[in-house]
Every structure is written in structure tokens, then in C-alpha cells.
Simulated assay, not measured.
Amino acid sequence: MVKGKIAIRKINCSKSRQVTFFKRRTGLLKKAKELSILCDAEIGVIIFSCTGKLYDYASTSMNSVIERYNKMKQDNQQQSITAAAIQFLQTETESLNQQLRCLQECNRRLMGEELSKLGLEDLKNLENVLEMGLKNVRSRKDQIHMEEMRELKRKVDDVEQENVQLRKKLRVVGRDHRESDGEFFAETSCNKERSKMSSQAIPYEDDMPERIVLQLSLQPKPYLLDVQKAASG
């Protein structure tokens, strides 16, 4: 008699559920063992019954199987994350490339190139954009000119103020110099006057004439007598 297929759903009868669990658990563990032997596979099976009992099978060691499982799971997650990141980067790169192509095309049109594909309305829009851009450029240029003029005026004012200060310092220095020269000339004149007066009052020894002292001798000298005798003879 051929067994009919049973529906895969929860068995309500607890006794029938226990019998089915025992049979299928035994068959599952047997198949796992056979698979590990035939195919040289590392297999670990963990079963918890509805009553909370633990049944397990490991071809090598349950700890090594669980450790290998966790490692492989992490690697798979990283690979998934890497694959998702690569996909995102590829999508983002394609979007950026598309934007770059659009910008290059707009730039060429602003330079007056590749206008053959544009219609009348597109050309009018391009003309408005260029006029607006030219207006902004001129406004910015005028602003820069005004800023430069203000800066130059500030520098001129600083130089003039510095010149005023220097002129004041020169006037003060000139006045002090003239006063010091006047005192010097007055002192020199006074010294000259004092020297003149002292020279008139007390003459120097070098300026005094030499005195000639004449001494009259009453007794004639012997050689004078000889001279007189020769003259009378």
C-alpha cells in the first residue's frame, strides 16, 4: 500500500507529534552523518524539541562548526556590504559623469559652440543667460573699482597726514636749531668782548717791548786808554 502525502502543518495530537518528531529527528541526524561521510562535509545539526530538550550532531566539533559559521557569516555580510557599496559608487559615478557631460555641453554653448542643435527658443534663453551673466560681471567689476579707489584714497590720506606730522617736526627742529645757534653766537661774542677788554687792561708779556738798560761807567776801560793814546800819538 502506497503511503499518501501528509500535509506539512502542525500536528495537534501531542502523542502523534512526539512519534513524528522522534522518527524524523533520527532520520535527519542519520542523513547528516551520511552526508558528512560521503561528501567530506563539515556538518553541525542542533535540534530543540517542543519540550526543550537538546539534540545535536557535529561531524567534527560543534564549537568549531559554530566558529566557522560565525566567521563565514561575517565575511558574507562584509561582502554584501562591499557589493552594495560598489553598486552605490558605480551609480553615483554614472550620475556624476552625466552631470559633467551636461555642464561641458552648457559651457560649450556659452562659448558659442555647438549651437546648430538649438532652436529659436533655446537661443533666446541662452542670450538672456549671457546678458544676465554680463551684467553681473560688470557689477562686480565696478564694485572692485570702487573698493580700489577707496583704498587708494585712504592711503593718500595717510600719506598726507604723515607729511603734516613731518612738517611739524621739521619746524620744531628748525626752531630749536636756530635758538641753539643764537645762544652759541651770543656766547662767542661775549667771549670776544671779554678777551678784548682783558688784552687792553693787562698786556701779555710777549707783546711788551724789551727794555734796554744802559749802565754808565765812570772809570775807563784799559783797552779804551790804549786807543786814546794811539790817537794822540
Rank of each mutant, 00 (worst) to 15 (best):
K117M: 06
K117Q: 11
K117L: 06
L118Y: 11
G119P: 01
G119L: 05
G119R: 07
G119A: 09
L120M: 12
E121F: 08
D122H: 11
D122S: 15
D122M: 14
D122N: 13
L123H: 13
K124M: 12
N125S: 15
N125H: 14
L126S: 02
E127Y: 13
N128A: 14
L130K: 15
L130Y: 06
E131V: 05
E131L: 15
E131M: 10
E131G: 01
M132L: 12
M132H: 10
M132E: 15
G133Y: 09
G133S: 15
K135C: 09
N136G: 12
V137Y: 12
V137G: 04
R138P: 01
S139H: 05
R140I: 02
K141W: 04
D142V: 04
D142M: 13
Q143V: 02
I144H: 03
I144E: 04
H145V: 01
M146E: 05
M146A: 05
E148A: 03
M149I: 09
R150T: 00
R150P: 00
E151M: 03
E151P: 00
L152G: 01
K153W: 02
K153F: 01
R154F: 02
R154M: 06
R154I: 03
K155P: 01
V156Q: 08
V156L: 09
D157S: 10
D158K: 09
D158M: 11
E160M: 08
E160Y: 01
E160N: 10
E160W: 01
Q161K: 11
Q161M: 13
